[in-house]
């Protein structure tokens, strides 16, 4: 999808990506635990900034927003606890249980330094590509 973003951007157009990702350079056991605790769609292939660069972007800014992410997960767990009775009645026990488990696992992974949330900004460098195609 990052390649498609690159393609549809004008030269020097900006891409902003936010993603939950594994903390870089985790050792075997931590990596295993992170994948176990993290959401199924955690971005695990490579660090986000690196992925952007591989897709042709120049990395402009990288911002770690893990602290805010942790607050949001807590807020969600609190809201769930406060509305639990009504949610069980109207949404069902399974939905409430699954939501709590998923968020609790996420929070644990963040607290243990296994997951982080990052916002990166990349610039679509297109003039270089034109040079290599012999356009200039």
């Amino acid at each position: 999808m990052l390649r498609e973003c690159y393609r549809v951007l004008r030269p020097d157009g900006l891409l902003v990506v936010a993603a939950i990702e594994l903390t870089p350079n985790l050792k075997d056991l931590d990596l295993h635990r992170a994948l176990e605790l993290g959401p199924a769609d955690v971005h695990a292939e490579a660090a986000l900034g690196e992925m952007l660069q591989r897709s042709g972007f120049e990395l402009v800014i990288e911002r770690d927003v893990t602290r805010e992410f942790r607050v949001r997960i807590r807020q969600r767990l609190d809201a769930l606890a406060r509305n639990e009775q009504a949610l069980r009645r109207e949404e069902g026990d399974d939905v409430v249980h699954e939501e709590r488990e998923k968020r609790a696992r996420m929070l644990k992974a963040v607290n243990q330094g296994l997951l982080r949330r990052t916002i990166v900004v990349g610039r679509a460098e297109k003039s270089l590509m034109q040079t290599s195609d012999g356009v200039t």
């Binding site: 990052l2 951007l9 004008r10 030269p11 891409l15 902003v16 993603a19 297109k126």
Partner: peptide, 10 residues
């Protein structure tokens, strides 16, 4: 080259 910016969150 259609867009000036793209956002892509989570």
């Amino acid at each position: 080259g259609h867009f000036s910016a793209v956002c892509h969150t989570d």
